[in-house]
Design a protein around this nucleic acid. Structure first.
Lengths: 224, 224
DNA sequence: GGACGGTGTTAAGAACCCGTAAAAACAGGC
DNA sequence: GCCTGTTTTTACGGGTTCTTAACACCGTCC
């Protein structure tokens, strides 16, 4: 579903939101200060920002301004301050919504839904290309020689993880925990089966892969 | 500047808002009940709606639903009720913002600015065409071979969601949460029923769909 | 050379998912 | 209150995917 950047300096609130939003299907990117938030927003595809105004390193309004400098991503502000002056400042700085603490989780979820609903189709995710095939992350579409290639859910999860880390070595443990869950971190034979299937679908010569490479004992690497 | 439709059954509040917003450059269209509000929204060009939920003739949620049936205009809800359940319902019905009374005028003005700001660039509703049928998003009209095809509300919601994301794979979870609501995210059998109905109405050979495709385990995809 | 750990390939049953039709429950209009 | 159209529920056959197992392969180390 959507990716939420959560910015809050109180670890327990950050953790609670992280767990709850994840349970409701969101991918959560946490940040405990303004600098980390701005950095995270630039390196990852964020669909909506939940921003606590009380940050240790910089003014929350500057975080809003920093984001608004280059992105239209919806920003929901959390704040303990009820004063209307604070609300006006945050909204005029570019925030989309302002929620005062304490707030109910269901209210935050509803406001998240409202924010993502109107933001609609977000900026295009990258289209990863190789000489043999192309992977369209946003549309979950794989093409080879112009023709679409059907992927099963597990195949897609593995492929997506590799393709989102082009050139980087992804450990077997990491793939297993992210695709199958932490309990499967040792089931390396799953990986062998699915890597074989991916190569059969995507590589010209599955026995001598060019793009989906094995690093024996380490993990796998996607070479563009 | 912008035109605001204000819906409130208390004459003095309606009058006060009218004067204040007018003083801040807004053109104000007043309505004292839900029926008048829906009528006004259809006859005049409205940029943003300020809606009090406590109306004499109909439930405020139905007003939201009525507006959302055909327009994306931003809706700011005013309510005396602080309960998070009320907020969730209003936001999920399609409202963009929820302000509890009492509120400061400057806060309302800031929220109006935020709402109109992001509504800004209104894109024209496209006419989606395939070899078999055409979908007119703006007029909620589906045609096949020149003849209009009747759609039930639910059928239309599902079709609209798919057609608005041409080529993109839309997960079952996403369709269910957007059409039926977050509580129905697991009711995948609804989808099977409605996809079958849509295909029966729109595909030449419903058993071998060309435009409304299934990706087993992943979701559905509309291919233009 | 042979054992061994890690890897690739294939196949088959189990588990799960999907399409279809038809009936039951529900809602709105008259 | 009845009637019509819509949504929800139910059941089942057929298909796809996941998991598991068995075996071949390739290098390294003893």
């Amino acid at each position: 579903m959507s990716t939420v950047l959560i910015v809050d300096d109180e670890p327990q609130i950050l953790r609670a939101l992280q767990i709850n939003l994840h349970a409701h299907g969101y991918t959560v990117v946490p940040a405990s200060n303004g600098t980390a938030a701005l950095a995270a927003a630039q390196t990852q595809a964020i669909d909506v920002v939940v921003l606590d105004l009380g940050l240790p390193d910089m003014d929350g309004l500057d975080v809003i301004a920093g984001l608004r400098g280059w992105t239209e991503v919806p920003i929901i502000v959390l704040s303990a301050r009820h004063g209307s002056h604070d609300k006006v400042e945050a909204l005029d700085a570019g925030a989309d919504d302002y929620v005062t603490k304490p707030f109910g989780l269901d209210e935050l979820l509803a406001r998240l839904r409202a924010a993502t609903r109107r933001a609609g189709p977000q900026a295009a995710e990258p289209l990863v290309e190789t000489a043999e095939f192309t992977v369209d992350l946003a549309n979950k579409l794989v093409q080879r020689g112009g023709a679409p290639v059907r992927m099963t859910p597990t195949e897609w999860s593995v492929l997506e993880l590799l393709v989102r880390n082009p050139g980087r070595l992804v450990s077997q443990q990491q793939i297993l925990t992210e695709v199958w869950g932490p309990a499967y971190a040792k089931e390396t034979h799953y990986l062998r089966v699915y890597m074989a299937q991916l190569r059969r679908k995507l590589e010209r010569d599955p026995a001598n892969p060019v793009h989906l490479l094995t690093e024996a004992g380490m993990g796998y690497r996607f070479a563009p």
